[in-house]
Amino acid sequence: MDSSLTFKSGIKDVIPTVFGYIGVGLAMGIVANTSHLSVLAVLIMSLIVYAGSAQFIIISMLLAGSPVSAIVLSTFLINSRMILMSMSIAQYFKKDSLMQNIGLGFLLTDETFALSMNKLNLTHQRLKPTWLHAANVVAYLVWAAATVVGCLLGNLITDPNQFGLDFAVVGMFIGLLYLQIITDRSKPLTTQLLVVLFVAIAMYFLMRFFPGNIALLLATLLGCSFGMVVSPK
């Protein structure tokens, strides 16, 4: 990754994260297949909902015949962290048109958000719509394709995890977090490490009471507040 913000560099920069989408997407397609969802339903879901963990929950709740309202509420709760990420990244696109902003928001994911935050450290805190559109669109297409292929292969491969692909997404966040910590010069290293430590401990305590997705949201909110308190004035 370098300071270039062209369409081409957007495609190049997103490549490492593609493994994560493939791993999780295949797994999701296979789960959908075993839950008797058609390939068409999987494709439509990936194109319209486009959210990894939420899609797993939706499939399991559909299989259980849960009420539509409960599924929609769960989806909203799981994805509400998108509100925080969108707010954070939107400040770099204030000068771009509303349509550009809506387009960028439409396809933003955990991964392309994290990638953008890494990129900012190399570009003097600037981002361009072209670069993010490129990363977003590649991620979107790879995700849709991976879930469809997973659904088609569902009958052949019973355990996609044997290839370790389920770890791709964890590995990606390890890499993105590490790069974020070592390259973000806007905050002292100690402040960042304190926030990491605080959020990690908060996650452990919160998961005593809440499922991972809710704990994640609460820990992030607490972590940001903690960061404001401990950062040097």
Partner: peptide, 22 residues
Amino acid sequence: SFLSFVPVAIMTAIFVESLLTY
């Protein structure tokens, strides 16, 4: 100032979530 901590906080939370089981 609050939002500037979102990246490091959310990436840590996503990583730690994958190390724990609920």
